[in-house]
Amino acid sequence: MTQRNPMSHDEIAQFADNAFLDQTFPKQATDYDDLSRYLEENAGYLPNMSIFDETYQQYQETN
């Protein structure tokens, strides 16, 4: 959620904005498999999973 920026055209910022607006997105989850499974099954707003992979890697590096 720290990557949110409604004015940006960056894929990660758009993903973060859409996940924020997704009422059922597991915002408190930290497990890669849980998040990945949710996105594969429910996130029509995510054009490809590589965006999530990159975002998750950045999250891992900052925590």
Results as ranks from 00 to 15, higher is better:
24 T>D: 09
36 S>T: 09
42 N>C: 15
58 Q>E: 07
56 Y>W: 07
14 Q>P: 00
2 T>E: 07
53 D>F: 13
3 Q>R: 14
48 N>E: 06
37 R>E: 13
51 I>C: 15
17 D>C: 10
43 A>W: 04
62 T>C: 09
32 Y>M: 05
22 D>Q: 07
31 D>L: 07
16 A>L: 03
41 E>W: 07
29 A>N: 06
8 S>W: 10
54 E>G: 03
10 D>E: 07
6 P>N: 07
56 Y>D: 01
10 D>H: 12
2 T>G: 09
16 A>H: 01
41 E>V: 07
46 L>I: 10
54 E>L: 12
14 Q>L: 08
8 S>Q: 11
13 A>R: 01
9 H>M: 11
21 L>K: 06
4 R>G: 01
54 E>H: 10
32 Y>C: 04
56 Y>Q: 03
4 R>W: 03
34 D>V: 12
38 Y>W: 15
13 A>H: 09
47 P>K: 11
59 Y>G: 00
46 L>V: 08
43 A>L: 09
59 Y>V: 06
10 D>A: 08
12 I>S: 03
11 E>Q: 11
36 S>L: 13
50 S>G: 05
2 T>A: 06
43 A>F: 05
43 A>K: 09
28 Q>F: 05
60 Q>S: 12
42 N>Y: 15
44 G>I: 10
3 Q>L: 12
41 E>P: 03
9 H>Q: 14
61 E>C: 08
45 Y>V: 09
1 M>H: 05
43 A>V: 11
51 I>F: 12
4 R>H: 03
51 I>Y: 14
34 D>W: 06
39 L>A: 03
39 L>D: 01
52 F>G: 00
9 H>D: 10
5 N>M: 08
49 M>Q: 13
51 I>W: 14
49 M>C: 06
29 A>K: 10
17 D>S: 02
15 F>M: 11
59 Y>T: 03
24 T>K: 11
63 N>A: 13
12 I>M: 14
36 S>I: 07
58 Q>G: 02
55 T>D: 11
22 D>R: 04
21 L>Q: 06
20 F>D: 00
43 A>T: 08
50 S>M: 10
35 L>Q: 00
51 I>N: 05
